[in-house]
Design a protein around this nucleic acid. Sequence first.
DNA 1: AGGATTATTGTAATCGTTTACATGAATGAA
DNA 2: TTCATTCATGTAAACGATTACAATAATCCT
Lengths: 327, 327
Amino acid sequence: MATIHEVAQKAGVSAATVSRVINNRNTVSEKTRMRVEQAIHELEYEPSVLGRNLRNSESRLLLVLIPSISNPFYSEIINGIEDTAIAQGYNILLCETDSNPNREAIYFNMIRNRLADGIISMDPTVNKEKLIELANTYPIVQCSEYEKDGSISYVTIDNELAAYQAVKHLIKLGQKKIALINSDEKFLYARERRQGYEKAMREFGLPIKSEWIYITDQLGFQSGQQAMRVLLNLADRPTAVFAVSDILAIGALKEININDLRVPQDIAIVGFDKISFSNMTHPTLTTVAQPMYKMGCLSVNMLINKIRGKKVDSIVMDHELVIRQST
Amino acid sequence: MATIHEVAQKAGVSAATVSRVINNRNTVSEKTRMRVEQAIHELEYEPSVLGRNLRNSESRLLLVLIPSISNPFYSEIINGIEDTAIAQGYNILLCETDSNPNREAIYFNMIRNRLADGIISMDPTVNKEKLIELANTYPIVQCSEYEKDGSISYVTIDNELAAYQAVKHLIKLGQKKIALINSDEKFLYARERRQGYEKAMREFGLPIKSEWIYITDQLGFQSGQQAMRVLLNLADRPTAVFAVSDILAIGALKEININDLRVPQDIAIVGFDKISFSNMTHPTLTTVAQPMYKMGCLSVNMLINKIRGKKVDSIVMDHELVIRQST
DNA sequence: AGGATTATTGTAATCGTTTACATGAATGAA
DNA sequence: TTCATTCATGTAAACGATTACAATAATCCT
């Protein structure tokens, strides 16, 4: 790979001039610009990102923090992030934390090292204190999961409202015994969705029985399946389920199928996220769609604005209840 | 963030000595080593990767090329890659090409720029000529999909054998009319799995009807569903299906369910990959398991050896047929 | 023409490391 | 004691870019 000096030599100018051509500084005459561009072309020169970064202390790399790459919920958001980032000349580094503080520390150090210019955190398991502290010094935005105190800008949806509407949908269909399969309530989204659930139940005068609320400690299919197993064994068995993620809902559905119960006749079920697999289950899953791709795009724009020192406002996006066969 | 010079000053030595301490050069006296380590600790110093990279022209970053992050097949491999890479002091940059040559070009340039030290390609849609050319100069390994000419080291499984065994399993169950849902045969794995299918059919004297072989142009659920729709409409309808990926098999299963046919009684089905969903379908899917995590680990080790200039040999791993309810 | 502007280009310092080489101190041998 | 050898450390150049500043060339105005 040619260096800037070789280009300079070939074009008969100094490295400084070549640099000016590359960066579109206006102070280069048309004649030399042509010569330089010719030389760049002939040598197939590409500026070394390393050299540039060192000097500018910018890397044009964005960190995206997710707990696990296996969770399809993130895929679509990441698509949005990637498309937008590349369009703006940034690359993204996907950081799977596996909810492991050591990994998290590695990635946090990358930004301190100026190896990355900013962070988009989608990790609900992130160390909040550390993240907030880091956000004082470095550009950080949150997507989906966020801090309520507003110390970090975010893109999200109204989780409470979405959950409220999902449960209301079940109620309108005549359901009265509605269970909730929630994830750990240390996550804000879990607390908010629970509130939406309770709000709808209360509004229609339905009982909120604690035995109908199952809290999973993990996020996989198995957890949903396990939750449903417990719910089905109750003396007063619920006739509908609202699960806070499609993954959990699909696990629950599996357990219902195993027990030869019919969906939605015996048990209706609503998920959350509209992952692609939710349309492949039998029956297909009613779910809450988040504008995932769009959320990814907006997060990147927000982050880049922050990097450039602009002030940014948090965004709450619209969601949509997608009614399919499971209700 | 402190620099090496600040550490040097605090410890009362030169930057060179600090550098030697950091890199475990043996020529530092115990006394000064202690002083330097103390200073590093007090200043919470972390070496700048940028400066180091520029000097060494190494980045300790590995590129992982995949067509799409949404495909769960890659998730588990990536887990293996990530764990191993981090353990060896490397980070990985997940590169989603979306089968887009422009994106591919961006990533290829990163390695030419020395922004990355090597590439693990898992992308069957990659431009083979460019990849092979690049592999002459830079460390590159392939995982799963590979080049038969042996110009690039790889980690893979015996696709033909795996397909052969999957189909043989169907035959042993008494199936005679076995269809194949394949992906585009420009991919080596597709050609190999087809050969395995044909080998088994031939060996047991079963007819290979071209109308029983459906080739999808995409890799999503919909393609599998579409394929099954066509197969079900045949006058001479197959009674079993071998799909070359779980995604396709799940789509096919969906279509079978829609038509109120029973699996496996009316139609048996075998997938490939053992993605996590394959255990959540109703019925659960018989499939071929690849040692995905392990493949990821081995790819990284292979690549790092290549980076260090060692000679490496390609590896063919063992697979396993996982028999579940769909057969 | 001569001085003042302005446009263009070059020089050299800088970013944070690593490392070949130089230097000086400590040690050992005679 | 004196010289050779070894050990520990420092000096300075490099990696490849960017950019403040200086220097020169071109242009304009009176």
